[in-house]
Design a protein around this nucleic acid. Structure first.
Lengths: 218, 218
DNA sequence: GTCTATATGCCGATAGAC
DNA sequence: GTCTATCGGCATATAGAC
């Protein structure tokens, strides 16, 4: 009853921030530009977000689960083997990176921009997302009965962000293939060592956010 | 005859830029701060560098070879096997990252900050350095007679930047161990497939720059 | 070569009207 | 809830003296 189309305005502000922050960098974009892109004035932006840092926080938070869900939902067949799932993760990276507007991983870039600001919301948001992503990888591998699932998940996480970084730097998507091949070699090595267990599977949850450019993240 | 202590002033400006850009980010630091840290006025900075972009370019260029030489010079014994060399690369990453002022890789962070600016000197400098680093890895592996040296070098490069990124995000140096272990597993896999060749070795060149904080890069 | 002083504009953030 | 108008500060870059 208190808000007219307040949530809609806020949504538009977030969408504008998302587009501009990802496209040009967080520090490179002023609050003026975000407000203008959302079709409101700066004062309205500051009504919805207490500061630019709060806007940054909301921007990264809005990307966290949708990005995860994008990868969670990769495989329609819940019985697909781990090797296939891992392969498709890196195939998705490669496809995303082919989009002309792709600019790497917003979490990594945010953490890089604010590397010098301890406790900054951008660093907290980035760390939370990456931890979630690594945790999802670990669960996936555990469900497949891979031995040392935590170790392998961490190594795949490293390959993942490493590939994204190299692709961004060289604008060469073939790094995704190299990383995917490495991940499969590591998976094979771990599977030889590990003890096979009963397999379980999980269902993905639907994302709670509005339409997003799904190619965008990593 | 034309310059009094011009080269010294320029050196101080570069040293100040290096410290500030790495510590707080390139866009986060203004030319005022760089000039002040170097003990000169802005006008003097603009006498030595045509623009901030030129200063950024010189900053990254000044880190390129010294960083490479730091890794080149890792192993005193030229007869050390590849596994030992690879292991020490990631051990160096871990040690560097333990320094309280460590902030990840300046090339990756520069590329991340200017991901939206096509053709920016920061992106060019980052790409050149990473290509050189990957090339050095390839030469190192070729000299050891590793089969598919180019492929493995690329995978180790991915693990390298991936680990640095994760360490920066989580402030957890153990990612270097995970990456090092993965690199050794991949090396072993490649060595089983590859055909052993006669070994050659190379000597490192001395760096041409002044004293630098060697822990700083990656 | 380095200085003082300044041009010009955008930065994040706020006051107060409606 | 959104507006107009504005604050003080800092951004990159430059003019001209010495």
């Amino acid at each position: 009853m208190v808000a007219r189309d307040s949530t809609e305005t806020r949504r538009r502000l977030l969408a504008a921030a998302d587009k501009l922050f990802y496209g040009e960098g967080i520090r490179a974009v002023g609050v003026d530009a975000v407000a203008a892109a959302a079709g409101v004035t700066k004062r309205t932006l500051y009504y919805h977000f207490a500061s630019k840092d709060h806007l940054i926080e909301a921007y990264l938070d809005g990307r966290d689960l949708p990005t995860l869900e994008r990868y969670r939902g990769l495989i329609a067949d819940p019985a697909a083997p781990a090797a296939q799932r891992i392969g498709q993760i890196f195939a998705l990276v490669e496809n995303n990176a082919r989009h002309p507007d792709w600019r790497g991983c917003n979490f990594v870039r945010a953490a890089a921009e604010f590397a010098g600001s301890v406790g900054h919301p951008a660093r907290i948001g980035a760390a939370r997302h990456k931890k979630r992503f690594e945790g999802w990888l670990r669960e996936l591998l555990e469900a497949e009965g891979v031995g040392d699932a935590a170790d392998l998940a961490r190594q795949i996480m490293i390959l993942f962000d490493g590939a994204v970084t190299q692709i961004l730097i060289h604008r060469d998507t073939s790094y995704a293939k190299a990383a995917g091949a490495a991940a499969l070699m590591l998976l094979r090595a771990h599977q030889t060592e590990g003890v096979p267990q009963a397999r379980t599977s999980r269902r993905s949850r639907a994302t709670r956010t509005v339409r997003q450019e799904l190619w965008r993240n990593v």
